[in-house]
Design a protein around this nucleic acid. Structure first.
Lengths: 346, 346
DNA sequence: GTGAAAGCGCTAACAG
DNA sequence: CTGTTAGCGCTTTCAC
C-alpha cells in the first residue's frame, strides 16, 4: 500500500464549509449558478487546504483526458523537437497537455506508443511515421477506436487520415533548380528509403527539375542511403569514384549532406567551387558548420501548429473521420548558404 | 456531448461470457486464483471486442498514474533531449510513461508545469531548473504534496531533494588545466548567470585551476554572458579589445563557445593557434563545425538513467523524503577536438 | 475459482 | 442558488 497521503478532495472542502460536494465542484469550475460569496469561500478554503484538483477523476467522469499524444521518431532530431514546440503552443492555448512518445524509428516501438496512448485515453494522436515502419495497421487501430489522428511530415495517403506536410516535391525541385542556376552541370542526388513517401517525392522533384531544364537523368548519379551521416559519406565516396564525378549534390536531408561534405573534404574537394551541396530540413547545425549548409526549410514550428490546429478544428466539428480527408501542404523555403553559392547570386 | 463511441469495457466482456466484471478484471491481470480456461476465454473475447483497458479508471482506483513528469528548459537543446532519452529507457522498463513539459527557461512556465503535473497526479517529477528561476517555492509545493521529486543537472541544494548532477567544478577545472597544458598563458572564461549553481561552480573550477597552477586570476579575463551564441560573440569581442587579449578561452557551455569562435573568425584569429577554445556540454554541433569544438561531456544518457533510477529506488523504499538527501555526482569527461589542440598531445 | 458490493474523486442531471 | 443521487471503469476486500 502506498503511504496514505494528505490529498485534499472536494469532499474535504465541502465538509469544512458545510456544503455539498457538487456545490464545491461548481464553485471551483466557476459555474454561473453559484453565488459570488460561496465561490469566494470555496476558493479560500481550497487554497488553505492546499487542494489540487484530481484530473484523473475528472477525466474518468468526463470521458476525456485533455491530452494529446504525439509520436515522433526521435527527439534528438531538431526538426521533431521544433514541431513538438509548435504543437505545444497551440495545445496549451486550448488547455490540453501533450504526451510525447519516441519511436526511435522502429515500428515495434511505434505500436507500443499507440497502445499506450489508447489506454491512456488521449483525446487525439499526432504522429510522424517511423522510417522502419513498412506496414500501417497499427495506425488503423487508432481509427477503429475513433480516436482522432493527424499525421505530420511523414504521412501516408493510404491511411486516409488528415495530414500536414510540406511540399517535398517542390522543395526538391527548387533545390535542384538552384544548383542548375549555380552553374552545376552534373547534379547528383543522395536519396533514401523509397517506402517513405517524402523521400520518394524528393527524388521525383529532383528528376523532374533536371528533365524540365534539359538535363539527362543519369541513374549513376542517384545513390540510396539511409539518412545518416555515414551513408552520406559513403554515397559521396561512390560518386567521387566515378569517371565523371558530379559538380553538385542535392542530399535528401541535412545529416546526409553533412556526411557528403565530410567525404568531399577528405577528398580535398572544395565546396562549393568543385562540388556544390544543398541539404533538406534546416537542422540547427547547418548554419554553424564550415562552409555553412544550404538547405530547404521545413517550417517546423508552423507544421506543429497546423497539425494541432487541424486536430482541434476537426475535433470541434465532431465529424473527425469524414471523407475526403484534409491535407494541409506547407510551402518549403530555400535557405542559401555558403555550401551552394558558387557565384554571388543577387 | 462527445459522440458515443464503442469503447468496450470490462463489463461488456463479462456480459458476453456470463461472468462477473471482477472475474474478468482478475483474468486480465493474470490473477492466480483464476482458472486457465477462464483466462483464455476472457483474453479471447477481449481481443475480439477490441478491448483496450482504461488506464484512467485504473489510475483513479489504484491512486497512482504510472506517469513520471519531466520538466526541462528546452527540448531544442540536445542535452536535454538526450537526458529525457535516458529517463525514458528506465521508465519504460518499469512500465511507466513519461510526460514532458518545457519551461522554455521561464519561471512562470515552470510553475505551470508543476501545477499541471500535480493535477495529473503523476507519481513523480524529475526536473531541471530554468535559468530564469530565481525563487524555488514552486518546487516546495511538490514536496508538500509528498510527490517524489528528483532534480537533474540544474539542481539546487537549498531544496534538499535528491539530485543527479555532474561534477561541474571538476569539469571546469580539468578544461582549464587542459588549456594550460596546451601552452596558453592568458586564459579567459566566458561565464553566465551566477544564480545558477552549475555556472558558479564552473567559474570556481576555472579560478582554482589557475591558482593551483601558479596563474593569476585576472578579473578582466572573466566575462559574464547569458548562455547564447550572441553573448559568446560579444564577450569574445570585448576580450579581443583588451591590450593583452587571451590566448585561450574556456566557455561556460557550447553555444557560448560557438559565439566566441565566430567572433575570433571575424577578427581573423586562428583557432587554436592564436586562441584555443573549449566549451562545455558536448552539444551535437560541436563535432561538425570547423575547427571541431573541444568540450566537456556531461554524460547525458547516464544522467537521465540515474535520475530515473534514483526516483524508482526511493519510491520503492517508500521513505522518499528522508534526510539526508541523496546526491549522485557523475564524472564529466573531456573531449579534445581541434579547437584546443595546439600541439599533438599524446 | 467466482460473485457481490463498495469506492477511488469528480460532474451532471434532476429536483427544489 | 444549492442538495441529492448516480455513475464514469476499474480493483479489491469479503463472502461462499
Amino acid at each position: 500500500m502506498p503511504e496514505i497521503i494528505n490529498r485534499t478532495t472536494i469532499q474535504d472542502i465541502a465538509r469544512e464549509l458545510q456544503l455539498n460536494a457538487s456545490t464545491v465542484s461548481r464553485a471551483l469550475n466557476n459555474h454561473r449558478a453559484i453565488s459570488a460569496a460561496t465561490k469566494e469561500r470555496v476558493s479560500y478554503t481550497a487554497k488553505r487546504l492546499q487542494y489540487h484538483p484530481n484530473k484523473i477523476a475528472s477525466s474518468l467522469r468526463l470521458g476525456k483526458s485533455q491530452i494529446i499524444g504525439v509520436i515522433i521518431p526521435s527527439a534528438e532530431i531538431n526538426f521533431f523537437g521544433s514541431v513538438v514546440h509548435g504543437i505545444e503552443r497551440i495545445a496549451t492555448e486550448k488547455n490540453f497537455n501533450v504526451l510525447i512518445y519516441q519511436s526511435n524509428e522502429l515500428m515495434e516501438a511505434e505500436k507500443k506508443g499507440i497502445i499506450t496512448f489508447l489506454r491512456s485515453r488521449v483525446d487525439g494522436i499526432l504522429a510522424s511515421i517511423a522510417k522502419e515502419s513498412t506496414s500501417f495497421e497499427h495506425f488503423l487501430e487508432i481509427k477503429k477506436m475513433k480516436v482522432p489522428l493527424v499525421l505530420f511530415d511523414r504521412a501516408n495517403d493510404d491511411l486516409t487520415v488528415p495530414s500536414v506536410v510540406i511540399d517535398d516535391y517542390m522543395g526538391a525541385y527548387n533545390a535542384t533548380v538552384h544548383l542548375i542556376e549555380q552553374g552545376c552541370k552534373r547534379i547528383a542526388h543522395i536519396s533514401a528509403q523509397q517506402h517513405v513517401a517524402i523521400f520518394k517525392q524528393r527524388l521525383e522533384g529532383y528528376t523532374d527539375a533536371l528533365i524540365y531544364n534539359g538535363f539527362d537523368v543519369e541513374e549513376d548519379l542517384i545513390k540510396f542511403g539511409n539518412v545518416t551521416i555515414e551513408s552520406g559519406r559513403s554515397c559521396m565516396d561512390e560518386l567521387l569514384g566515378m569517371n565523371e564525378p558530379p559538380d553538385g549534390v542535392f542530399a535528401v536531408e541535412d545529416f546526409t549532406a553533412l556526411g557528403a561534405m565530410q567525404a568531399l573534404k577528405n577528398a580535398q574537394k572544395k565546396i562549393p567551387e568543385d562540388v556544390a551541396v544543398i541539404g533538406f530540413a534546416n537542422e540547427a547545425f547547418g548554419e554553424f558548420i564550415t562552409p555553412s549548409l544550404s538547405t530547404v526549410d521545413q517550417q517546423t514550428i508552423k507544421m506543429g501548429e497546423e497539425s494541432a490546429k487541424c486536430f482541434f478544428e476537426l475535433l470541434e466539428n465532431k465529424n473527425f473521420y469524414k471523407e475526403p480527408v484534409e491535407k494541409r501542404i506547407l510551402k518549403p523555403e530555400l535557405i542559401f548558404r555558403e555550401s551552394s553559392l558558387k557565384r554571388n547570386t543577387g
